[in-house]
Simulated assay, not measured.
Amino acid sequence: MLYPLRVFLIILYFILVAAIGILICLIRPFHPDNTRWFGRIYSWGGAAILGIKIRRHNYDSLKNIGPCVYVVNHQDNFDLFVTGSVMPKRTVTIGKKNLRYLPFFGQLYWLSGNIFIDRKNSSNSKVTMSASTQALTTKNKSIWVFAEGTRNRGKNMLPFKKGAFKMAIEAGVPVVPICVSSYVSNMDLKRLRSVKAEIKVLPPIKTENLTIDDIETVIKECWDTMKTTIEQMDKETYAF
């Protein structure tokens, strides 16, 4: 009984927040903190409905970083209700083009100032990345990227796409890895407390004075550090 009730409530909550959010964003469209506001709201209610207990580590370290590229592992659509709890100020995300077609949420995502990318269209992707780099350098914004490019279902972390790291190097801003434990593969929505989700912010990886020739080195450092951290969190949290 708990599982279908949760599914019904989370869909209802998802739609209600998006609908109310659209009205608010029409008053302040594309404000740099819209994404943070609604990320927090989605996480606050969504985690409660789904029975997810979230623990944040090193979150305070985000306060004084300034413009940067946040690189986060991507497990499932439930990530909205988990990672929204650590969405920093003046941060926008990069999402797939098909998000715009989701009723209510797609419009909220756009009005919140987030960026759509069409990975099948190379020229469009280049324009999007160029605009994102400009936001980092001239608009005092940070970019949030699920660098795997698709969901890993809480299993092994997938290889990273280069786009996020190219932006960081071109803008000369740090890459900040944010690791989320493998909560999806350990979640049971039939239980009152379905799962614990650990989120850990890692030290920034500096890119100043680097060139595109260094991109593979930065990607490897970020991927290796995140992989090790996630494995350690999983071991401590889920008793593997």
Rank of each mutant, 00 (worst) to 15 (best):
I94E: 01
K235N: 15
W37R: 13
S112T: 07
L5C: 07
I117Q: 02
K190A: 08
I20T: 07
Y109A: 02
K96A: 03
F14K: 03
S85M: 10
L111E: 06
W44C: 00
K196M: 11
E198D: 15
F105I: 08
R153P: 02
A168K: 06
H31F: 14
V7N: 09
I65Q: 03
H74K: 11
L111I: 09
C179I: 13
L189P: 00
L210C: 09
I11E: 00
D214E: 08
H31M: 00
T150I: 08
C222E: 10
S61T: 14
S123I: 14
A18C: 11
T211K: 10
V184A: 15
T35P: 01
G66D: 06
Y59Q: 12
T138D: 13
A19K: 05
E221N: 13
D79F: 08
A19W: 11
R55N: 14
H31W: 15
C25E: 06
T35L: 10
T93F: 04
S122E: 11
S132F: 05
S125G: 08
T93G: 08
D76I: 03
M1S: 13
V127S: 10
D188L: 05
G172H: 07
M1W: 08
N121E: 05
P204L: 11
I169G: 07
R56Q: 12
M129W: 07
F165Q: 10
N114M: 03
V180S: 10
I20W: 00
N121P: 01
K139L: 13
K166A: 12
Y238N: 09
G95C: 03
Q75V: 04
R28D: 06
A239P: 01
I178G: 10
D213A: 14
L99N: 02
F146S: 02
S125K: 04
L12P: 02
M187D: 02
